[in-house]
Simulated scan of single mutants.
Amino acid sequence: MRIGIIGAGAVGGFMAGHLARAGTDVAVLARGPHLAAIREKGLTVESQGETWTSQVTASDKAADLGEVDVIVVTAKGPALPVIAEAIQPMLGADTPVVCAMNGIPWWYEYKRAGGTDAPIERLDPGAVVWNAIGPQRAIGCMIDCPAAVAEPGFVRHVAPRKGSFTLGEPDNTESDRVKAIAKVIEEAGMGAPVTTNMRRAIWIKLLVNASRSPLGVLTGSTERGLAENPETLAVTMAIMREAQAVAASHGIEVRIDQDRQSDPSQRSLHRSSMLQDWDLGRPMEIDGIVRIIQDYGRSAGIATPVLDTVSALLGEKARAAGV
């Protein structure tokens, strides 16, 4: 199986490094100093006490990489319209596209029970991604892989557990294509559980991201720091409860473990991907992680006052900084 990794930063680089070490044919679409370092020295990954370097095919042009059997997009939501057009040379007639990203994905309404079966304007203005990739190619992916680019060409995984990528079809079937992709990922030393309720997996992670990532940007604090301060902890728990109510309006029940979520020892010193984007002056996934919850809440008549306040502050901070 030939796998294309689009956006080989922290998460994409982690996956590419594992796959390449296992002998999988990996084609990486990257750019800038990270691409230059990968070409010159290879892709280095540090994870669970191991460090290794793999040679991967890498380019900033999809035409150089050619057609692949599977594409894994690990780039952030704001970059997707450009990426959707750029990866066309890598798409075969039936190439699936694994959407490994935080927040509500662009394909979310596709075959959702009670949904619109249409693009979401907030996440995919003008249906650019929907039309360029096609929702029938989409495979959902929930990421559990705290990682960061330590320096160009070098990805550091900062959790004691192995990185994991939960996979699922938009229609909740357990398809052959998902099982085949999961097998390759697992054989490379990563986790790849297959779910028949992908949207629930997305909301479980979204409750965490929405309650911590925006506050991390607003305060500069790590996830553990937010839990150590009783006042910021109260805000994170309030946002989780608001998002939980919105998920329930979609028929998705997400349990909140109050004790675990309130225990600083259960949180890492990791700087969230949104905070990493802020640090680097890159656009943040505010729409997919924050504003879409507000949209769905308003549509269902569910108030989200704490999230509304945090969203306003985060949006103004981004606007003032021009990101």
Score class of each variant (00 low, 15 high):
residue 4 G to Y: 13
residue 7 G to Y: 01
residue 7 G to S: 14
residue 8 A to R: 01
residue 8 A to I: 06
residue 15 M to S: 04
residue 27 A to K: 11
residue 30 A to Q: 07
residue 43 L to H: 01
residue 43 L to S: 08
residue 45 V to T: 11
residue 58 A to Q: 06
residue 60 D to P: 09
residue 61 K to R: 14
residue 79 A to W: 02
residue 83 I to R: 11
residue 91 L to G: 05
residue 95 T to S: 02
residue 109 E to Q: 06
residue 110 Y to V: 11
residue 111 K to R: 14
residue 113 A to Y: 01
residue 114 G to T: 04
residue 115 G to T: 07
residue 117 D to V: 14
residue 120 I to H: 00
residue 120 I to Y: 00
residue 124 D to P: 03
residue 130 W to T: 05
residue 136 Q to A: 12
residue 148 A to Y: 15
residue 153 G to K: 13
residue 154 F to E: 00
residue 157 H to D: 06
residue 162 K to F: 10
residue 166 T to I: 11
residue 173 T to V: 04
residue 175 S to C: 04
residue 177 R to E: 14
residue 179 K to D: 07
residue 193 P to C: 03
residue 197 N to H: 12
residue 198 M to I: 14
residue 203 W to C: 01
residue 205 K to R: 00
residue 209 N to M: 08
residue 209 N to D: 10
residue 210 A to T: 10
residue 213 S to F: 10
residue 214 P to F: 13
residue 217 V to P: 01
residue 219 T to K: 04
residue 221 S to Y: 11
residue 226 L to N: 03
residue 234 A to F: 12
residue 236 T to F: 09
residue 240 M to A: 13
residue 240 M to C: 09
residue 243 A to K: 05
residue 245 A to H: 08
residue 247 A to P: 05
residue 249 S to I: 08
residue 253 E to V: 11
residue 255 R to P: 00
residue 259 D to F: 14
residue 266 Q to E: 14
residue 266 Q to M: 15
residue 268 S to K: 04
residue 275 L to Q: 10
residue 276 Q to E: 11
residue 277 D to T: 08
residue 293 I to T: 08
residue 306 V to R: 05
residue 307 L to K: 00
residue 308 D to S: 13
residue 310 V to A: 09
residue 313 L to I: 09
residue 313 L to Y: 13
residue 318 A to K: 02
residue 319 R to I: 06
residue 322 G to S: 09
